[in-house]
Simulated assay, not measured.
Amino acid sequence: MTELAAAAGIFAGTNVDDLLVLTVLFLAAARSGRPRPWQIWAGQYAGIALLVAISGAAALGLTLLPDRWVGLLGLVPLALGLRGLVSAFRDRGADPPAVATGLVSVTAVTVANGADNIAVYTPVFRTAGIGGSLVTIAVFAVLTALWCAAAGWLGGHRRVVEVIGRWGHWLVPLVFVAIGLTILAGLL
């Protein structure tokens, strides 16, 4: 049960910003017909699958690293989170999300927007083992569907997009800091 909760927390924390991007894509789909909703869903799944595959490959490469040092990988999401907080403080606003018009561009936006997820997923897959990694991937698959469904629903509510846009740039770095500290706590 803890693996399920941890995987859900990791997915939610690393994809809060993606929810905003998906919501904007569904808004665009409703207004212009592009991208089509199926392209958003398929592109999101393809992008998440690529991020997971890259993270899994990196985690396999880290099997050469002694277990006692793996927890130091928590410094990566911690640093990303701190950098994000500094940036959010300086900019006082979020960058506008990229807009895509088809399956390939939705996939590209998902990968580009989630490239920092690799820094979080890699140590998770490295420490979770095969069984834990499979549970994590299954949770990610289910939550990707939930994210798409939620974004489709939110896309009909402009005010929700404004709220996510206002606070998302603070929330994402805070979650990264928490994930980094959790990974580092495994060293203790």
Rank of each mutant, 00 (worst) to 15 (best):
I118S: 09
L134W: 13
V99M: 12
F125S: 05
A30Q: 10
E3N: 07
P35N: 01
V111M: 02
A94L: 06
L103C: 00
L154S: 02
W167C: 00
L174Y: 07
H157V: 11
V161L: 14
L103Q: 04
Q39D: 01
A6R: 15
L187H: 12
I118A: 15
R34P: 13
A119H: 13
D95I: 05
L64V: 03
T127R: 15
A59D: 08
G93K: 11
A46H: 01
A7K: 07
V76Q: 13
G81V: 08
S105C: 06
T182R: 14
T127D: 15
A115K: 10
Q39V: 09
L65S: 11
T14D: 10
S133Q: 15
L50N: 09
A115N: 10
I40Y: 04
P77E: 09
V160M: 13
H169Y: 02
V177E: 03
G9Y: 00
E3V: 13
A88L: 12
A57E: 14
L181F: 09
Y45M: 05
T101V: 09
L188Y: 07
R166T: 10
W38G: 11
I48L: 05
L184R: 00
D91G: 04
A7T: 05
W69A: 11
A128W: 06
W69P: 05
G13L: 03
Q39M: 00
L171V: 01
T107M: 10
G155N: 00
T122M: 09
L75N: 01
R166H: 03
A59K: 06
A178R: 04
L25T: 03
A138L: 15
V16F: 05
S55T: 07
I183N: 13
L62K: 08
M1I: 07
I10L: 10
L60F: 14
V142Y: 05
N117F: 12
T14L: 08
G168Q: 13
G81C: 03
G93E: 14
R166E: 11
F125E: 03
G81K: 06
L75K: 14
V175N: 11
A28Q: 14
L82W: 01
P66H: 01
G155M: 06
T182M: 03
L82T: 02
L187F: 10
R36Q: 07
I137H: 14
G186C: 07
R159Q: 12
P97A: 02
R126E: 07
G155S: 12
G61L: 12
V70N: 12
E162A: 15
A46N: 00
R83S: 08
L64S: 10
A185I: 06
A185V: 02
F26D: 01
A5F: 04
A108S: 03
